[in-house]
Amino acid sequence: MSQILPSPLLSVRDLCVGFDTDAGFLVAVDGVSFDIPRGGTIGIVGESGCGKSVTAFSIMGLLPRPAGRIVSGSIVFDGEELASASEARMRGIRGRRIGMIYQEPMSALNPVRSIGSQMMEALLLHEPLSKKAAFDRCAELLDRVGIPSARARLAAYPHQLSGGMRQRVMIAMALSCGPDLLIADEPTTALDVTIQAQILELLHKLREDAGMALALITHDLGVIAQNCAEVLVMYAGRVVERAPVNEVFESPAHLYTKGLLESIPRLDTGRKSVLPTIPGMVPGLKDLPEGARFAPRSPHPKAAAYIASEAYRSVRPPLVELSPGHWVEDCEVVRV
């Protein structure tokens, strides 16, 4: 039975991204696919270095040049292919249709220009406003993201604001042109815990008000539970599990996902109990195997045999669908 589904806002298919480095060409994102429906939310999780930011920068066309490039795959945004789009075309999309918040609020703003001039710039690039009107809009935006005495703050320089305030400015700037999609790349990692909660709450509220789609990147599954409908778990450049958020929490199918879940601090476990961690480290990008990359860290009894096998070196396990919308890497030794 076929059903006419509305086309997703963003559709990423088999995205492969790599970098030219002194050690040769390294693939940082290897065959990633996912969709974001209009107004929908997706969370991307994974440990440091698994390719989350690289995926986000690929969508924005912001890969560091000339080292980084998209090797293959497609990124279709609102019916338009972005992976091969011209720079001029991308300029019309960045900031206007896709906004982005970056990992490092401390360095993401230009230190020698005022907050106001940087915010106004974002607006004036895409909208035919007078300076005065743009200024007023910026004051309104700052007000919306909860910055007190917004008008006065526009004259401030980044170093005069705290990290949380800067991230609010970044959010205001990303939202200024009313984008259809907001990519938030670990928007709270650099902030302290109370500020983290405030920023996430703000993002949540703004998203609902504006009805835009959100891709939230984090290494904290707890954050995703509150903010996203779907989860994408990445490991060493690949998607290892993709599922609706409640399924991930109720029945994680990949050992890596399970490990991430177990390492979230919980109130109901004993105070003395040690927080479990996933043993081992994310492998480097050099000489990655084709097989299930999590295998060396898997406690599965057959893991050692699998690593020694030819399959580990050369056969890529496909994703299988366990239940509607719940996909997992099809390899025995890394499955729960």
Binding site: M60, L62, P64, E87, R91, G92, I93, R94, G95, R96, M100, Y102, E104, S107, A108, L109, N110, P111, E121, A122, L125, H126, M170, M173
Partner: peptide, 16 residues
């Protein structure tokens, strides 16, 4: 040129 704020500027839709 490699600073984060340059990426922010280009990310706003500004010409490099």
């Amino acid at each position: 040129l490699a600073a984060d704020y340059m990426r922010t500027a280009v990310g706003k839709g500004m010409d490099f």
